[in-house]
Design a protein around this nucleic acid. Structure first.
Lengths: 109, 109
DNA sequence: CGAATCCATTGACGTCCGTCAATGGGTCTG
DNA sequence: CAGACCCATTGACGGACGTCAATGGATTCG
């Protein structure tokens, strides 16, 4: 049953979350909201060992600069962590990932 | 301990999820990855009754067309559901929301 | 009917995004 | 040192996005 209403009377929905928190969460979702980056994040989530750029370059049908670009975006969002070793750059999920972020990641599939 | 590697030898990470599924999930994340739409979705998630556009227009600092535009995007993503009643349009979470989508929504905050 | 209210659509504008080619810095091997 | 390999950065380009002003349809009230 829908609520009765007077004309011109609005009942604004309460905003439970702080705008700052919303902004922050939406940044994380933006970082995940690309097929390539999402696949990368799921691969890293399930990987037992850090994964290097050359692996992703071999897996996805995009150029190496684009792979690096996506990794940069994930890194700027604080989702991912680099370790250089010789000529390789190994990536893994950021070890200090916020609980909410980890929940989202696990909720995905 | 990082894996030993030969030069030029790549070990592509296994892709567990079907590309089609990834594409579909990323569409949902795109729909959520905007502060205004995220706030709308959380409001609808927690609302006991459907919410009308005029309520959101009164709550957010954006114009009415922009509110309608965001709602359209949520509707096209299958996240939201409209019911017209008189001059009002009431929105609620889509009743047939996939389990994964609902999990993501609950994981957020 | 006429005025007021709610809402969706259209058109426009500036910004951000995804992608690639080209370039250059590091690092290892011969 | 010279060559091969890995990777990040830069610059460029087309497309998508977020926003608003203006418009018009639908509905209700007087």
């Amino acid at each position: 049953m829908l609520p009765e209403r007077e004309r011109g009377v609005c009942c604004p929905p309460t905003l439970r979350a702080r705008p700052e928190k919303i902004e922050q969460t939406s940044e994380i979702l933006k970082a995940l909201a690309d097929p390539t980056r999402l696949q990368m994040m799921l691969s890293l989530r399930d990987a037992k060992e850090p994964v290097c750029i050359c692996d992703f370059t071999a897996t996805f049908d995009i150029s190496q600069p684009t792979v690096s670009h996506h990794m940069s975006r994930l890194r700027e969002a604080g989702l991912v962590d680099v370790t250089k070793r010789g000529i390789w750059s190994f990536y893994r999920l950021a070890p200090d990932l916020p609980a909410a972020t980890r929940r989202i990641l696990n909720a995905i599939g």
